[in-house]
């Protein structure tokens, strides 16, 4: 009978490292998307990556890293609150932009800005 506890401990740190690193990579991908994508509606997709997958991976990694302590519970709270607020805020932004008449960019055509359209009508 071999003692598996040390191996589990190593596995825990390896898994934590992988999750943290993966989360950071997704975070970078999301940030590059925020910077490079052509219009607002496309950028929301990039924000979605950071809000959901990267957040979950990073916090899961930190929870594994910290072990079973009070910090773990607090990190779980952070995850829950971020999961409640962040997508809701993104939804609100998208909803507001849509209601304000911001059109997505299709192909190479830049749709007219709602402000200009309003001026033209008056």
């Amino acid at each position: 009978m071999i003692d598996i506890m040390p191996y589990l401990e190593i596995l825990r740190y390896v898994l934590a490292g992988a999750l943290l690193f993966g989360g950071a990579v997704f975070m970078i991908i999301g940030a590059v998307g925020m910077l490079r994508l052509p219009d607002f509606y496309a950028r929301i997709h990039a924000a979605g990556i950071t809000d959901t997958l990267a957040t979950v991976m990073l916090i899961a990694g930190m929870m594994l890293h910290s072990g079973f302590t009070q910090t773990t519970a607090k990190l779980a709270l952070v995850a829950i609150f971020l999961f409640l607020t962040s997508p809701t805020a993104t939804h609100a932004v998208a909803n507001a932009a849509h209601k304000a008449g911001l059109k997505p960019r299709l192909g190479k055509v830049q749709p007219p800005h709602p402000r200009d359209k309003m001026k033209g009508a008056k």
Partner: peptide, 16 residues
Amino acid sequence: NHHIVLQVVAKILIPI
């Protein structure tokens, strides 16, 4: 009402 998501989330968040 386009703000139903906001209302529900706010109702959860305010007590927290």
